[in-house]
Design a protein around this nucleic acid. Sequence first.
DNA 1: CTGCTAGCATA
DNA 2: GTATGCTAGCAGA
Length: 955
Amino acid sequence: MTEPAAPDQALPETPAAASPADRPATDAAALPVLLLVDGSSYLYRAYHAMPDLRSPDGFPTGAIHGFIAMMKRLREQVIGAGPGGHAACVFDASGPTFRDAWYPEYKAQRAPMPDDLRTQIAPIHEVVRLLGWPVLEVPGIEADDAIGTLARVGAAAGHRVIVSTGDKDLAQLVNERVTLINTMTNETLDIPGVQAKFGVPPERIVDYLSLIGDTVDNVPGVEKVGPKTAVKWLAEHGSLAGVMAAAGSIKGVAGENLRKALDWLPQGQRLVTVVTDCDLAGHVPGWPAIESLALAPVDKPAMLDFLQRYGFGRLKNELAAELGAPAPAAAAGAVAVPVEGTAAPATPPGDAGLARHYETVLTREQLAAWIARLKAAEISALDTETDSLDPMRARIVGISFAVQPGEAAYVPLAHDGPDAPEQLPLDEVLAELRPWLEDAAAAKVGQNIKYDTHVLANHGITVRGWRHDTLLESYVFEAHLAHSLEKLAERHLGRRGLSYEDLCGKGAAQIPFSQVDVVRATTYSGEDSEMTLQVHQQLYPQLAAEPGMKRVYEEIELPVSAILARIERHGVLVDAGVLARQSQQLAQRMMDLEREAYDIAGQPFNMGSPKQIGEILFTKLGLPVKKKTATGAPSTDEEVLQELAADYPLPARILEHRSLAKLKGTYTDKLPQMVNPATGRVHTNYAQAVAVTGRLSSNDPNLQNIPIRTADGRRVREAFIAPPGHVIVSADYSQIELRIMAHMSGDPGLTRAFAEGMDVHRATAAEVFNLAPDAVTSEQRRYAKTINFGLIYGMGAFGLAQSLGIEQKAAKDYIDRYFARFAGVKRYMDDIRASAADKGYVETLFGRRITLLDIRGGNGPRRAGAERQAINAPMQGTAADLIKLAMIAVQRALDEQGKRTVMVMQVHDELVFEVPEDEIDWARSEVPRLMAGVAALSVPLLAEVGVGPNWEQAH
DNA sequence: CTGCTAGCATA
DNA sequence: GTATGCTAGCAGA
């Protein structure tokens, strides 16, 4: 893109993304990075985001502070800790640019920069240079244009270009090799991201901006035309040129305004187009080569001087310590800040009168003393405080320890609030702690250890010696209750600590933990460690007294936690190009459906709004209301629309539109946005203590509900790929819950069906319809399949009738016949209801306990619900136990045999692996063998395996 | 900006 | 009829 986009450029059929064959997703990820920072776009943000900080002599320093933090973080996150990397930080120069010559009113409305910010600009340039960044400021050329030029040249020179900016206009630069990130919001925009955010691909952004205009820069667009109309017009007419050509036929006020703007639009387009062929000679050494834009090491001596001049005490001392010179203030006077814990409202048993003492560690002597205590302790609790909830991105702000009740230490490491004291340097503290953290013999306990494992791994530390996790202890002990440390402390210690909200607030007003006062942070984090230790001491003996629970905790949940951390960290490759093309196609089909629907309805309406659909369907068109929602509104759910579709044309359009919108909004647009820019992969989080039955759940993103049932949906799985030289291998348990039902009930008919390797649904149909298996029709088999699933869910005649669309009486008849033929199953269901009512809980085969509070309590519907859970939970839960055992067995085999195969996903009854080509045979034979061998039930376990270039084809 | 509802994706 | 998580729309702040 050397020229501003030509107005007559036609909309390509697909985005610029190449096919995966000639450009796999891994390609771009492997290229060296060129990181371009739009310094100007962050000036205001840094200024406003920070409190009004001042140096001792009153010079404003808030924005400087913000820049230092941001540039450090960017370098760490994008380039990594090591040397090397290409980058530049680009600022607007003062004075007029070529745009002012084109259009004198350009940026004319802009308020002058506040003096407090203006005075910080020179120091910001200086400090960015000292941090090792090439700084670019070219008179007559705006930062946007310089960045556009560097991005084009860099991409052509084989770089993966990452542009860090707060300015959305730069979305026009995005292509296969150029990605935008917004450091403030952690948002990344690649091709699908731009499409998702703006509704147009990157190459249409210029047209889009031309139409809507830019009030900030005082560039008018078409009056009354906003994002929605712009997207609609561009979708209909391809490009700005197309829109202009069709201006005569566009109706309404917007059409009139468009015609008025026809003369202006070419100039507007020129103004919003980023110029990518600026001459940077004299500003970039060696131009047009960009090798000179290399990150240099921090100029520490000069930096020290800078920090001294502007009164950045804490940062200065950190740096001084790093340089080996003793940090004067820390060595001279810092003493421990003892903090008494907040008084507990209720004194826990055995805790009477215990004074709590939490220590803030600010000196090397204190740190050394605590490390000695950790090394001597039988078991230590630890907890990290971080700057993010995203485990893969979180950086440590502080770390706390406890080795005995009543005492804790908090080591603040990155507190940067207004009154933050000088703290020990993070790298030095972690280096000191590393031997203990990585010592497998040093026993550790935590609350949700998977999170702390990630956080420390983010700093290059592999924690070993995790012996216990209070989250998992509680989950196994009483899965139906809440497991936050706050709740555990209340339940097991009768104690209430400071809550995170007390410290940081919530919602938009929430402050990062690094801004929390160190004294309060000490109380909070110290409590977290100390309460974790105490909860463990209370809870573990109770848990261990039950052999079944002890086994589930120690032999299933703890090992699985470590495996999940590895799965999450490795991530899975997602081909953003594949998804971008699908998004594009879905958008096209959705627009066609919208057109048809508006035509039928006689007016436009929002097809994504159940409320508006209801108004059109039931009020305007007078279709019959089939059922109501919980709030009394007429329902428009799938079942209703399906029924109405038989008699009317509109519901079918709505149904299809809705399913396409779901696919696009939830998967094809979203997944690419979830790719971690540092790894090029998607890293889900598996929640191990959420589902009461023992299942895992997956979030951010949820990889356990990727579509499979419909052809359109299934294609999303084509985007889940393996790196070059690898394939995807998927292995899933066949009919695992029905096999468990056969085992638990001991029913001879069902057991025989599995023992003989029969098609179980066919076998069920043969019994229920009293036929030979060969004589079963496909519809009869479908009925039997529904019955089998229904049984697993504890269904009654009503539910079966509903899902088969038959009379309740007929459904009852089927169920009666089933139970007559499979009397063992009937007996099992009755027994489990009775046993649940008797004990108040049910158990899985391995002793996992699921408590059912409503099984005896009060009203009918709730008890009926609890009875269904009583039937379902042992089967679903045993299946969860089995696949967890399979994960452990397979991971152990992989480790012991030194395989390079990696487990990348778990989907309840399925394990997915990334397998190097030379290990395909191993995976194909060993994985299903190991999965089938985790337990000896009275029926065989069977795992089926598939291999393919992507997840779809591995099925 | 936050919380709720409706609807829907998976096993 | 079991178990989950996520999105868009929308109402009330």
